[in-house]
């Protein structure tokens, strides 16, 4: 069991119809997520990076079954077998909800303003009928202290609006972990926090991951955050993974032109160092009925005729554990 991945994603697609109505079938689609294949091992944390609108949040929400995929499957290992998330029966639904949780981006909007912290953190327990109310109270207190909200008794019966952003995100983490899930999707959990408290929250997430043996899918647009949090990184562009590999290798030796461009946009905190800026043209668009050619073709600095006439390149191992989707990147 230990060598098998916890999550297997195969051919995951999400298409949004653009037009169409009651009597007309939609003729064009926004390919928000288009054929993702990846695996996440036990205890590993995979970073999903990319620009706004590239489909990373949609992917995350499909993994926690907030959205139904249009095609493809997500498989979660429970015990010795895999359950197919998109085609789930009553019993495995329970297993699924106990094992998968999500941390949301906005700590202000992801909590019901009329519920106390106890009710918010205890909601997964209450909904899934775990323990009596006094057992739940102890468990919530235990997790609040675990995320650094001490003493728990002074936070339990307060409302979210009485807490700061950092404290709220700690509450959100406690809530996601209180049923001790195996897998947590973290959708930019630190992007709305002050830089000064960001590191604290990230460190907390790492500590808890180790302690409770949690596997993360960490969605972010910040490469520095991804470097800190993740063992592997997948770079997404217009619904496709263009490059995936171990964090250090990907960041120090990027192979895909888009990854190179992303990295060159990260500022270096030393004015004397000059880096070769990778220029890419234009802006990100939407993948509405994409042409059968490389998604990055219009903006790619190394494109040629082959890229134009052939469909989007498949992810291929190009050396050192890196998989890259590009015709022009040589195999090492």
């Amino acid at each position: 069991m230990s060598n098998q991945p916890l999550i297997k994603v195969e051919g995951l697609r999400k298409l949004y119809p653009i037009d169409g109505g009651v009597f007309r079938k939609p003729s064009s689609f926004n390919h928000a997520v288009d054929g993702l294949n990846f695996e996440i091992g036990h205890g590993e944390s995979l970073g999903l990076v990319g620009e706004s609108g590239c489909g990373k949040s949609t992917t995350g929400k499909m993994l926690v079954k907030l959205f139904e995929p249009s095609d493809g499957s997500v498989k979660l290992q429970v015990g010795d077998s895999y359950i197919n998330v998109s085609n789930i029966d009553r019993n495995s639904r329970k297993d699924f909800r106990r094992n998968v949780q999500m941390i949301f981006q906005d700590p202000y909007e992801s909590m019901n303003p009329r519920m106390t912290i106890f009710d918010i953190v205890g909601e997964p327990l209450a909904v899934q009928d775990i323990g009596t109310i006094s057992e739940r109270e102890e468990r919530v207190a235990e997790f609040l202290e675990m995320v650094g909200l001490t003493p728990a008794s002074s936070f339990m019966f307060r409302y979210p609006h009485e807490l700061s952003g950092g404290q709220r995100q700690r509450v959100a983490i406690a809530r996601a972990l209180v049923i001790e899930p195996a897998f947590v999707v973290a959708d930019e959990p630190t992007s709305m926090l002050d830089v000064s408290i960001r590191t604290g929250v990230m460190k907390l997430m790492q500590d808890l991951a180790e302690r409770l043996n949690v596997t993360y899918l960490y969605i972010t647009h910040d490469l520095a955050v991804a470097r800190y949090m993740c063992d592997r990184i997948a770079v997404m562009y217009l619904g496709k993974i263009v490059e995936i590999g171990p964090t250090e290798e990907l960041l120090s030796n990027p192979r895909h032109p888009y990854t190179k461009a992303l990295l060159s946009a990260v500022p270096i905190p030393d004015p004397r160092i000059k880096r070769d800026a990778v220029q890419i043209e234009g802006g990100i668009s939407k993948a509405i009925d994409p042409q059968p050619q490389c998604r990055f073709y219009a903006r790619c600095p190394i494109r040629d005729e082959h890229c134009k006439t052939h469909d989007h390149p498949p992810l291929e191992v190009k050396g050192n554990g890196m998989q890259v989707a590009c015709y022009k990147v040589p195999v090492e």
């Binding site: 929400k61 999500m102 981006q105 992801s110 909904v127």
Partner: peptide, 25 residues
Amino acid sequence: KPYIEAARVAGGGDFHIIFRHLLPN
């Protein structure tokens, strides 16, 4: 609101979301 999605991820069904989140608000 995201807290409705959060409730669904927590395992809440339609009934739970309507009576615990929508109605109180």
